[in-house]
């Protein structure tokens, strides 16, 4: 068995505040296998950034045991630092330096030779589509460019585990997609990603496993599909060519909500493959033709709403 990239048990953190301590993380267990994308999903103030700050050695935890990249977080933080890369929510570039100088600064701090540093910088500038802006100060970069430079700087040291704290917050849709593409390429290269996001769509797109964080507690964990299946409200929508077919289907299925005008029938279902197959086989056996079919699984917004009873406010 390989060591997980992150193994946390009973992670706790609270901050002193008016009227007692404010608990930010209330006993969190996390296991992230190597080479996977794990997403910590939650609304603002759920404790996502605090979790990243603890796991990346920025702040100490109040309690719990954590191993990151096989090293004990509390006892050997420097070994953890040697294995990770962090791209935070706020751009961590030196705005007075050019893009190239920022990358060379990272190369120097990773103790690369001058030649290797230059090669690595050039390679990353190319890969992140920043070669044209290499000699411009980072302050002149757009939000998307700064975020790309930020991630490029994180990659200079070739980390095996990367923390991405809300990597696309504030980006336009195009920059967001290009960031997603970059993340997918990293994962293809075997890197483990710990991603926090408040965008349900983003976790759905990228993550192998998702944990929902709400007020410092994990309220659910699983693949996107597993989470969606836990929620009632999914259905299969069937459309028929004529009213007689719709009626026949209603009689056979004995459930569902018919819409005679649209010639559609909504059948409650978890949307799983087995359920869809059983439904279609049944209709096929009775010779009832289905003109169109679509499966509506609840999206993660529904999941959040169901599990917390609140909107996932942004």
């Amino acid at each position: 068995m390989t060591t997980p990239a992150i193994a946390a048990n009973g992670l706790r953190k609270s901050y002193p505040g008016k009227g007692g301590d404010k608990v930010v993380l209330d006993g969190i267990d996390l296991t992230v296998p190597e080479g996977t994308v794990f997403s910590l999903l939650g609304p603002n103030g759920a404790g996502k950034t605090t979790a990243v700050q603890i796991l990346s050695t920025l702040i100490p935890a109040d309690g719990g045991t954590v191993r990151v990249a096989g090293h004990d977080l509390a006892r050997s933080p420097d070994d953890v630092r040697g294995a990770i890369g962090v791209t935070g929510q706020y751009s961590a570039v030196d705005k007075l330096l050019t893009g190239e100088e920022n990358l060379l600064l990272m190369a120097d701090l990773h103790h690369l030779s001058r030649r290797d540093g230059r090669r690595r910088a050039a390679e990353l500038l190319d890969r992140f589509d920043l070669a044209d802006a290499a000699r411009k100060p980072a302050s002149a970069y757009s939000g998307g460019m700064q975020r790309r430079l930020d991630l490029a700087m994180t990659l200079v040291g070739d980390p095996r585990l990367i923390f991405l704290d809300e990597p696309t917050t504030g980006l336009d849709p195009r920059s967001r997609r290009s960031m997603w593409q970059i993340v997918r390429e990293l994962v293809a290269g075997g890197v483990t990603i710990f991603l926090t996001t408040q965008y349900l769509e983003e976790a759905d797109e990228l993550a192998d496993r998702i944990a929902l964080l709400d007020r410092g507690r994990l309220i659910a964990e699983g693949t996107a599909d597993e989470l969606k299946r836990r929620i009632p409200g999914g259905h299969i929508r069937l459309t028929f060519a004529g009213a007689h077919l719709l009626d026949a289907a209603r009689r056979v299925l004995d459930e569902g909500v018919a819409d005679p005008d649209a010639l559609t029938l909504r059948v409650p279902s978890d949307g799983g493959v087995r359920a869809v197959r059983e439904l279609l086989v049944l209709l096929d056996e009775r010779g009832i033709d289905v003109a169109e079919m679509s499966v509506h699984t609840p999206d993660l917004d529904d999941v959040f709403l169901t599990l917390t009873g609140r909107e996932a406010t942004r």
């Binding site: 990346s56 050695t57 920025l58 420097d78 070994d79 630092r81 040697g82 990770i84 890369g85 962090v86 935070g88 706020y90 751009s91 961590a92 570039v93 030196d94 705005k95 701090l109 990773h110 930020d150 700087m153 994180t154 040291g157």
Partner: peptide
């Protein structure tokens, strides 16, 4: 106040 110092703190330097 800038992120760059947070970055330095997460590096083995």
């Amino acid at each position: 106040t800038e992120g760059i110092v947070a970055r330095f703190r997460t590096m083995r330097i």
